[in-house]
Computed example of a mutant assay.
Amino acid sequence: MDLKVTLKNMVNTMKLAKKSDKDDYMQHLRLVLLGVASIGTIGFIIQFVFSVFR
């Protein structure tokens, strides 16, 4: 790809991007933390089950 075209696309993307407000940020943060907590809980349960049944 041409460097000029790539830079122009990057500039256009930055112009179109908008900063999310606090409510959107908090909602995304809650969803990410919920996902991390659920994956951690599932991993803990699997590890606990395998350690009990050894």
Rank of each mutant, 00 (worst) to 15 (best):
M1Q: 06
M1H: 11
M1G: 13
M1L: 12
D2P: 05
L3H: 06
L3R: 13
K4M: 01
V5T: 06
T6V: 06
T6R: 05
T6F: 09
L7A: 07
K8N: 03
N9T: 05
N9A: 08
N12D: 15
N12H: 13
N12E: 15
N12I: 06
T13G: 08
M14R: 06
M14D: 02
K15Q: 01
L16K: 15
L16C: 04
A17Q: 13
A17W: 13
A17S: 15
A17L: 14
K18R: 10
K18M: 03
K18E: 02
K18Y: 00
K19W: 02
S20C: 05
S20W: 13
D21V: 01
D21Y: 02
K22I: 04
K22N: 10
K22A: 08
D23T: 13
D23F: 03
D23I: 04
D24Q: 09
Y25T: 03
Y25P: 00
M26T: 01
M26D: 10
H28G: 02
H28C: 04
H28D: 08
L29Q: 12
L29S: 02
R30Q: 11
R30V: 07
L31T: 10
V32Y: 11
V32N: 06
L34W: 11
L34T: 07
G35Q: 11
G35P: 00
V36I: 14
A37Q: 14
S38L: 15
I39C: 15
I39T: 15
G40W: 07
I42R: 07
I42Y: 07
I42T: 06
G43Q: 05
G43D: 02
F44H: 02
I45M: 13
I45N: 09
I46Q: 11
I46K: 12
I46F: 11
Q47R: 12
F48P: 00
F48T: 05
F48H: 13
V49G: 03
F50E: 06
F50R: 12
F53A: 05
F53N: 04
R54Y: 10
R54E: 10
